[in-house]
Design a protein around this nucleic acid. Structure first.
Length: 242
DNA sequence: ATGCTCACACATGGATGCCG
DNA sequence: CGGCATCCATGTGTGAGCAT
């Protein structure tokens, strides 16, 4: 997690990531998302160390991934991105380099957004299954999961809704483009889509749980059933297996 | 304020029916 | 017969309503 000193207000702008690696921006943006209230607008200046992975598109995608909407297109000059953004109710990405697995959900639930933990509802079987499968060692701690186990978290759609059914297929497909870009950039070994319906909408309507024939770049795609209790078809034992 | 109960919502996959 | 759409069973988490 970035220190508060990493966030500097400069003449109305909030400057993030100065002289840091691009991959450090998601955590800084998540930190900012935590600090501002829903609906408030910010003018961001993102100035990481120049890299081949840094451009206007990346800047916009990182802001969206952190739970902001863009008020207008990103202005990019001299390797510095300027963005006018508004915070929405969301759950920021937890991602970094050298990830083993990137977990991709459908979209955050109100509980997850409020608690800042994906699949965070006490009854959700994601964390018990991941813990018992030996994937993670600390319950409901995304930072620990990322740092110690190389497990990142994102969602196809960053907007919070009560039910995934409130998201239209075009919104999922648009979100998938962002997730694909994230995967091609950070190159996790495996990307795990949590919930068959999401992968079916964006890729293969007939997909079944398990390793998918299609990969994203060098990243293997795995699809597992949704761990919400609403999905009674998958038992905890099944989920541990996945 | 807290704990409990219970009807409901839901994702999923299998079964069934329709159409060309 | 194959492809597609629709219906149905499943059973657990959710959340409203109620009791304490």
């Amino acid at each position: 997690m970035k220190s508060k000193a990493a966030i500097m207000k400069t003449s109305g702008k909030i400057e993030l990531g100065r002289r840091r690696a691009v991959w450090e921006l998601p955590a800084e943006l998540a930190n900012l998302h935590h600090k501002v209230s829903i609906g408030s607008s910010c003018f961001l200046k993102l100035a990481p160390r120049p890299s081949k992975h840094w451009d206007a598109r990346r800047a916009a995608e990182l802001a969206v991934g952190a739970g902001f909407t863009l008020d207008k297109p990103c202005f990019f000059r001299s390797q510095i991105a300027f963005l006018s953004v508004t915070k929405i109710e969301s759950l920021p990405d937890s991602v970094g380099p050298k990830m083993q697995t990137l977990m991709v959900g459908l979209n955050p639930s109100p509980y997850s957004s409020a608690s800042r933990v994906p699949y965070g509802r006490p009854g959700n079987r994601f964390w018990p299954a991941a813990h018992r499968a030996g994937l993670i060692s600390k319950d409901r701690d995304i930072h620990h999961a990322l740092v110690h186990h190389g497990i990142g978290f994102t969602d196809l759609v960053r907007r919070t809704t009560r039910r995934a059914g409130e998201i239209d297929p075009p919104e999922f497909r648009s979100g998938f483009e962002r997730v694909k870009s994230l995967i091609e950039w950070l190159k996790p070994k495996v990307v795990c889509f949590v919930g068959l319906s999401g992968w079916r909408i964006v890729s293969n309507p007939k997909a079944k749980a398990g390793i998918q024939p299609a990969s994203i770049g060098l990243t293997t795609v795995y699809v597992m059933p949704h761990p919400s209790g609403l999905n009674a078809h998958a038992s905890l034992k099944d989920l541990i297996g996945h």
